[in-house]
């Protein structure tokens, strides 16, 4: 059993209004060393696969076809072995 952690974020070139508003609030808190905030989502998948490569391939397919919209989003996949 593998676990895929998928981070979906808005593409760098796209303004992230939620991140911007949150950044403003952090500045209001006095946390002025924070220069930028980007907000995305974390999706976790439990995958039955016989190898890490297969698990990654499956997660890729899930991202391409549904989990991320590549018009506006990027994604990163982290795979870990959960069988223990």
């Amino acid at each position: 059993m593998y676990k895929a952690k998928i981070h979906v974020t808005l593409r760098k070139s796209i303004l992230d209004p939620k991140g911007k508003a949150t950044h403003q609030a952090l500045q209001n808190l006095g946390l002025n060393q924070i220069n930028n905030v980007r907000i995305g989502k974390l999706i976790e998948l439990d995958i039955h696969a016989d190898s890490e490569d297969n698990a990654r391939e499956l997660a890729e397919t899930a991202c391409n076809q549904l989990l991320a919209n590549e018009v506006m989003e990027d994604y990163q996949i982290e795979i870990s072995d959960n069988s223990s």
Partner: peptide, 17 residues
């Protein structure tokens, strides 16, 4: 229609949230 690929592009949150 955008998600189905029948029209191009995507929708973001309104600029002013």
């Amino acid at each position: 229609l955008l998600e189905a690929g029948l029209l191009p592009g995507a929708m973001l949150y309104n600029e002013k949230l």
